[in-house]
Computed example of a mutant assay.
Amino acid sequence: MLSSIHFVDVNEEFVDALREEFRPRAVAAILAVLVALAVVSDDLWQVAYLGALAALAGVLSAAMEAEMLDRRLVWIGVGCVLGVGGTVLWLSGEGNVAGRVLAAVALLAGPWLALDSAVARWTGIDAAADRPDLGLEDADAGEAMLTMQVTRLVHEELRAADHPLTVGEVAERTDIGERRVETALKFLEHDARATATDAGYVHDDTYAGKRGEIRRLGRRLTRPVRLLAAAR
């Protein structure tokens, strides 16, 4: 009985996620692009293939949103498909420069994506699932702006402080409720803009600015290697 109730709940979540993915405006925009491609392209099969990929991507996204599929397994599959497709296209020697570049990108990105997702699954990491929820998805425009403003104010308060601040101290300094402050701090910590210590939270500017973004990208690209090395 309980399993059937759980199945119904999951099924309803999946249907809701499908409705969100295939909103009329989004579907109309995709169809418009496909029609435009069909007009200028001589190969309608390629257009149909792109349409099928778009539909499949929407279904997979909805399934992951409803927690019917492990997003890491999905990305492993996507990485394998990209790697195989890039290899076949590159070895065929066909296509113009743009096609060769696309094949090279797929050939490099596919295996990395599969490896990164496989290591994440093996080590139990799910960055998307672990990301703190700011409540922006179901919030109206006013609430979303308020939440982002709170996060910005909390970040500025940490930056101005000369010592670690607790949730209560940040709430007192900003005159914001502790629940909102705690959510903002967790988000900033996840985004590597704040670090939690025994004494409280401190501002972290390791990844600030253009050089910081480059360091962040490098750290992200080397994540599979770092996780494998740490697990040894």
Results as ranks from 00 to 15, higher is better:
His203Pro: 01
Ala36Val: 12
Leu73Trp: 02
Arg220Leu: 13
Ala184Arg: 06
His155Cys: 08
Arg23Leu: 06
Leu89Ile: 03
Ala55Glu: 07
Glu137Lys: 15
Pro224Trp: 00
Leu217Pro: 06
Gly85Tyr: 07
Leu18Arg: 04
Ala171Gln: 07
Met64His: 00
Tyr49Trp: 12
Pro164Met: 03
Tyr49Ala: 13
Val105Tyr: 09
Thr151Ala: 09
Trp75Asp: 00
Val170Cys: 10
Leu2Glu: 14
Val15Tyr: 13
Ala54Lys: 05
Asp175Ile: 11
Gly177Pro: 12
Met64Val: 01
Thr197Leu: 12
Ala109Asn: 10
Gln149Thr: 15
Leu108Ile: 15
Val33Arg: 09
Arg223Ser: 13
Arg179Tyr: 07
Ala106Cys: 12
Val105Gly: 07
Gly218Thr: 05
Arg19Pro: 00
Ala208Asp: 15
Thr166Pro: 00
Glu21Pro: 00
Gly51Ser: 06
Ala55Asn: 05
Ala129Arg: 15
Arg219Gly: 14
His155Tyr: 07
Asp191Tyr: 02
Asp116His: 14
Ala231Asp: 13
Trp90Gly: 06
Gln46Thr: 11
Ala129Trp: 07
Arg211Glu: 12
Leu153Tyr: 07
Leu188Trp: 03
Val167Gln: 11
Leu217Arg: 08
Val39Lys: 05
Met64Tyr: 01
Glu157Asp: 00
Leu91Asp: 03
Ile176Pro: 10
His163Ser: 15
Leu134Tyr: 02
Glu189Gly: 07
Arg219Ile: 03
Val10Phe: 05
Val15Thr: 09
Asn96Thr: 04
Leu2Pro: 13
Glu21Leu: 01
Lys210Leu: 13
Ala38Val: 05
Val170Tyr: 07
Leu50Glu: 08
Asp138Asn: 02
Ala141Glu: 15
Asp140Ile: 03
Pro132Gly: 09
Val225Met: 14
Cys80Ala: 13
Arg71Pro: 00
Arg216Trp: 07
Asp9Cys: 10
Thr166Gln: 00
Gly93Lys: 11
Tyr207Cys: 10
Thr87Met: 13
Ala54Leu: 14
Ala141Ser: 12
Ala62Lys: 01
Glu178Asn: 01
Asp42Pro: 03
Val181Leu: 01
Arg121Asn: 04
Pro132Thr: 09
Leu165Pro: 14
Val154Met: 02
Val74Glu: 02
Ala230Phe: 04
Trp90Leu: 15
Arg211Asp: 12
Asp204Ile: 05
Ile125Tyr: 08
Ala139Asn: 09
Ala106Gly: 06
Gly85Phe: 08
Ala129Asn: 08
Val150Cys: 07
Gly135Pro: 10
Gly58Val: 10
Gly77His: 00
Leu188Glu: 03
Glu169His: 08
Thr195Glu: 14
Pro132Tyr: 12
Trp45Arg: 14
Asp140Gln: 04
Ser117Gln: 08
Tyr201Ser: 05
Ser4Arg: 12
Leu113Ile: 03
Ala66Trp: 06
Val97Pro: 00
Phe187Arg: 14
Asp133Thr: 04
Ala127Asp: 14
Leu228Gly: 09
Glu21Gln: 15
Arg71Gln: 10
Gln46Asp: 08
Arg179Ile: 12
Asp204Thr: 04
Val97Ala: 15
Glu13Ala: 15
Met145Pro: 03
Glu213Gln: 13
Asp138Ser: 04
Val84Ala: 12
Val47Gly: 05
Asp16Leu: 11
Ala32Gly: 12
Thr197Cys: 10
Ala52Ser: 09
Gly85Pro: 08
Ala55His: 05
Leu146Arg: 14
Leu115Pro: 00
Gly135Asp: 10
Gly95Ile: 04
Ile214Ala: 13
